[in-house]
Simulated scan of single mutants.
Amino acid sequence: MTDRQHSVFVVDDDQDIRTSLTRALGQRGYAVEAFESARAFLDAYDGDRAACLVLDYGMPEMNGLELQVVLNDRDWPLAVIFVTGHGGVPESVQAMKGGAVDFLEKPFRQSDLIDRIDAALEIAEARRAAAASRQAVRGRFSRLTDREAEIVDHVLANPAEVSSKEIAGTLGISPRTVDHHRARILEKLEVRSLVELVRLADALQGDDAAGG
């Protein structure tokens, strides 16, 4: 796959559609790659580059809505525009609930598609940045030892019982040991207090819930 800005992927089992969209979008400066099936796209995409996905709804084997579910599960930085010749209201509602930018019925005006692609690329870049931020936070939590993670779990589950004495009593260790672990936890998570720790964990859980 190419590595240019303004990437657009076209996934459609209709060769004529793939050819016409690739030509038209390429003439407008987009880096376009076309695939005849959802599986072909999944085999080729690296999951890293922010892009707009122009996706046909009614494909055999794996249709567009089924591919959308896979993409959301993988938390990839893609913004989807559905195009369809035989989708109805239930399908469009499901697509939009899944985070699609729009659901266009064939035939559609290329100018309408271009407008939506530009909006989709902005959304995709925002998703890429958010995913990178989540990954960075997960990386901080992965630095914790088992005991440090146990203390963090206690703090998150019992936000009213976060003194060293209270944590020590629950875990069966000395308050001095808890103090040592707390200092290391704050350092590894790059926060200044347990309050910031709780906010960091809440933000990560909220992003994960929204992304899922």
Rank of each mutant, 00 (worst) to 15 (best):
V93M: 12
F108P: 02
L144F: 00
H6R: 13
A31R: 11
K106N: 03
A119N: 12
R143C: 06
A209I: 01
L78E: 08
A132F: 03
E196G: 07
M62S: 07
A160H: 06
L25F: 08
P107T: 11
M1G: 14
M62A: 11
G26F: 06
M1S: 14
D179M: 14
R147V: 13
E150I: 04
R143H: 06
V54N: 04
D207Y: 01
R134F: 04
V137R: 02
V80E: 03
A120L: 06
R138F: 04
D179V: 09
V198M: 07
D102Y: 00
E190A: 14
D207W: 03
A119K: 13
A168G: 07
R23I: 15
V10E: 00
D14Q: 13
H154Q: 14
V10D: 01
V198H: 04
D16E: 08
R4M: 10
V178I: 11
L200M: 11
D48K: 14
D48E: 15
R49I: 07
E166D: 15
A38I: 06
R49M: 11
P175D: 10
S164Y: 06
V93E: 09
K165T: 15
L197G: 03
F35I: 00
F82I: 01
H180R: 13
D179H: 13
L200K: 01
H181M: 09
S111L: 10
V101G: 04
N63A: 10
V80P: 12
D115M: 13
R143N: 04
R140W: 02
E122V: 12
R28I: 01
N158R: 06
Q205N: 09
C52A: 15
D179S: 15
A126F: 01
L144I: 05
V8L: 03
K165R: 15
G58A: 09
D102M: 00
L197V: 11
G87W: 02
L55I: 07
E125N: 12
E91R: 03
G64A: 10
D115C: 09
Y57V: 07
R199C: 03
D75T: 15
A131K: 12
R23H: 14
G87Y: 02
S164W: 04
V80G: 09
A131C: 05
R4T: 08
V54T: 03
A51L: 03
D112K: 14
H86L: 04
G139A: 02
V178D: 07
A183M: 13
D207E: 12
T2F: 14
V137L: 08
P159L: 07
P60I: 06
A124P: 02
H181Q: 10
G212M: 02
G212W: 02
V10P: 10
F9E: 05
A31H: 12
A168P: 13
D153M: 08
G64N: 08
I81C: 11
L194M: 10
D102L: 00
R134I: 10
A160G: 05
A100M: 05
F141I: 05
L78S: 10
E66H: 03
G47P: 12
Q94K: 15
L65R: 12
T19N: 14
S164D: 08
E190C: 09
